[in-house]
Design a protein around this nucleic acid. Sequence first.
DNA 1: GCATCATATTTTGTATACAATTAGAAAGGT
DNA 2: ACCTTTCTAATTGTATACAAAATATGATGC
Lengths: 230, 230
Amino acid sequence: MARDKKHSESWIYDQVFAAIIEQRLLPNTKLIEKDLCEVFGVSRTIIRKVLLRLSLDKVVELRPNRGAVIAAPQSEDVRQIFEARRLMEDGIVRKAVHACRPDDIATLRRIASNEHAAVHAGKRSDGIRLSGDFHLRLAEIAGNRPLRELLRQLVAQTSLAIARYVPSGQPMCDEDDHDLLVEAMADGDTELSCRIMREHLEECERRLMMETPPGSSDLHTVFANLVAAE
Amino acid sequence: MARDKKHSESWIYDQVFAAIIEQRLLPNTKLIEKDLCEVFGVSRTIIRKVLLRLSLDKVVELRPNRGAVIAAPQSEDVRQIFEARRLMEDGIVRKAVHACRPDDIATLRRIASNEHAAVHAGKRSDGIRLSGDFHLRLAEIAGNRPLRELLRQLVAQTSLAIARYVPSGQPMCDEDDHDLLVEAMADGDTELSCRIMREHLEECERRLMMETPPGSSDLHTVFANLVAAE
DNA sequence: GCATCATATTTTGTATACAATTAGAAAGGT
DNA sequence: ACCTTTCTAATTGTATACAAAATATGATGC
């Protein structure tokens, strides 16, 4: 597993990041350095680098002297995440419509179809990951690195928000939105594509905000302002 | 200097980041860990954390086994940086126009006026820093953390691009654009504000692209594709 | 039984030691 | 003189040791 020491750091980063995206690591889970060392067979030096990177992605919170936990975005965070996504993904779709080639459309169709399959098979983790992949692929097609990198972070944080607020049975967004978007893009209809994306994100945020935070970790949210003020 | 060990890491980060912004550290400058340790009076552990953070901001390039250098954005990077900035800052201005209060306008006016003073006094470093501060203040007023954070990185990279491509005598953008923007915002004119910002960024990018890269570090740029292909 | 304080254990933060890699300098051959 | 090769010094990468802090445990008094 940890034989290829050369890329072990980025590999471990990817593993933990994927586990967070796929909601196998849930918000507020504590990440003990020693345990991660044992799991991945490296020293704390490496693990700490990984945790620092994850904290800069805002998917892990690094509390000084008190260890790392999986981030638990608050509702105001969620609002800002979706606000940023609406702005960025509008621009991304606009560029992607013009930049996309036939095989890009094919790839998007394939991802969307895999999404349907995952949802049908009840594979929630795969569904969430593929939904994120769809949005990131659009950013890839648009071809702007800074925007893609920020979107990567925002998609990950969206996963955390879903894990935090949406009960596991519930679907988090309309299954067909991605298909509609691909077809609008295939038609070269920029304005329709943008409208679908905007409404897709608005709908997703609305569903997220509908849900009331579950009880166990709610205390952190409720008293966050007090702790911050102290 | 390094007495307050508790915040030393973020303090050192700020110092180096500021030095990069203000172009006291120029692109391709090598950052030797040992030297930084001596300068700031801490161990390599701390310095390496700082370098990792700076590399994730894309203002430092971390070459495996070969040390850290101040990043030298290529023209394609610059194009993408400005593309991202146009998109983001349009949204930021749009929000800021509605969100801004009288004292926000006052702050913006003050920054713009300090900018004029710095340019007049020939204090290039201060001028560059204040110009960045102006844009970041807008993001602050708009009140979206993810957008502000990405803009912070992009503004820093813009500074690097200016250091890399614009001769030190040359002004990098029209002195009055910021003033015009503040007045449009004070009038609550969203569309005019956005147009000024868009044209301001377009003009800045155009001037940057006009300049041909100077000779010394040009080799890195010219043969970058060969090195990448190998 | 419950709260409070003291102690022990765990966990994190920083420095340092050592190994691996690279860059530079000196020597030798053409 | 110039290019190659070899050795040395400098530099980076990782693990580990130790210090500081936080958490958990247990004893004592009420």
